[in-house]
Simulated assay, not measured.
Amino acid sequence: MAQSQTEHAEAQLAEIELLLSMFPSQDELEVEQVAYAELRSYVEGTVDCPPNTRPELCVKIRTHTGVDVSLSCTYPTDYPAVLPEIVVRCGELSRAQHTCLVSGLRSYLRENCTGEVCVLPTVDWLRDHIHEYLEQDDGNDDDGAKGTTETQIGETFTRLWIYSHHIYNKSKRKNILEWAKELQLTGFSMPGKPGVVCVEGLQAACEEFWARVKVLTWKRIMIRHREDVPLESVTQNAESLRRFDGFEEAAFNPHGNRGNHMDLGQLFQFLSERGCAQIFQLYFGVEGR
């Protein structure tokens, strides 16, 4: 296992250094420096312990057709044996087009890159294929941003209440925020101990969010409660059922030696204001006040 972990670290470092040589400007490539330094020290043998911080990088690319795209990537410990966590941003894509692009990219990575470093192939794939998604019909929306918010009879609106033993890691907190926004989910994330996450939106998007989050490394994480509402008429849509306006990380008077504990009274008030007071007892076994 130790040898395998070392090999993974060596492959990660080699890829980062290759990317740095290809994208020398910080306008093109940003690398999280603490994680990079820890990774290099481990590979070079100046420290014995594997890095505590997962490497993160962001590549900013301009495609052949002049479209600006950013590619954020976080390496799991076992990368490249497993695929990295990738977020793609492009202001010219509608929501529907973006969803299709993400699906296409995942399929490409699963079929071609499992077990291999994949950031450069991902950059090349985006350059070669993003125009195909920009040309797709997004439902003739006037503003190009309604593709995933329109609902059809037979779809389901879902709200997931997720409990974690704790949420401290900055990378995980960043992923939670970015994935929720990418999938057009609303809700909130409360870091600390315990950790609470609520996401709401169309069922497929909520399931995709949970599929990504649960495979990260956790001491304990579970869906504590879920709400599913069939959208049985065109007058009942996902937007009318939302309890939250957007997705945010919410902190409630952090305290304790490490500032990791929240004021649960403030959390109860936050939930009550959004018509979700009953959830407090499901999480903590006592009635809020």
Rank of each mutant, 00 (worst) to 15 (best):
Glu7His: 13
Glu10Ser: 12
Ala11Gln: 02
Glu15Asn: 07
Leu18Cys: 02
Ser21His: 06
Ser25Asp: 15
Leu29Val: 12
Val31Leu: 06
Ala37Leu: 12
Glu38Met: 09
Leu39Lys: 05
Leu39Pro: 07
Tyr42Trp: 13
Tyr42Lys: 11
Val43Phe: 06
Glu44Asn: 11
Gly45Trp: 02
Cys49Gly: 11
Cys58Lys: 08
Thr63Gln: 09
Gly66Thr: 15
Asp68Lys: 15
Thr77Ala: 10
Tyr79Arg: 11
Tyr79Asp: 06
Ala81Ile: 01
Pro84Gln: 10
Ile86Asn: 07
Val87Pro: 12
Val88Ile: 15
Cys90Thr: 11
Cys90Gly: 09
Ala96Ser: 13
Ala96Thr: 08
Ser103Asn: 10
Gly104Arg: 02
Ser107Ile: 00
Val119Tyr: 02
Leu126Gly: 08
Arg127Asp: 04
Ile130Trp: 08
Glu135Gln: 12
Lys146Glu: 00
Glu150Asn: 04
Glu150Phe: 00
Gln152Ser: 07
Ile162Gly: 00
His165Gly: 01
Arg173Asn: 01
Ile176Gln: 00
Ile176Phe: 00
Leu177Tyr: 01
Leu177His: 03
Ala180Leu: 00
Gln184Phe: 04
Thr186Arg: 10
Thr186Met: 01
Gly187Leu: 05
Gly192Phe: 06
Gly195Ala: 01
Val196Cys: 08
Val197Trp: 02
Leu202Trp: 02
Gln203Cys: 09
Ala205Ser: 14
Trp210Gly: 04
Ala211Tyr: 12
Arg212Lys: 13
Arg212Ile: 05
Trp218Val: 07
Lys219Trp: 06
Lys219Phe: 15
Arg224Trp: 06
His225Met: 08
Glu227Thr: 07
Asp228Arg: 09
Asp228Lys: 08
Pro230Asn: 04
Thr235Ala: 14
Asn237Tyr: 08
Glu239Gln: 13
Leu241Met: 11
Phe244Glu: 02
Asp245Arg: 14
Gly246Ser: 12
Glu248Asp: 15
Ala250Ser: 15
Gly259Tyr: 01
Asn260Arg: 13
Gly265Arg: 10
Ser272Asn: 11
Glu273Arg: 14
Phe284Ile: 01
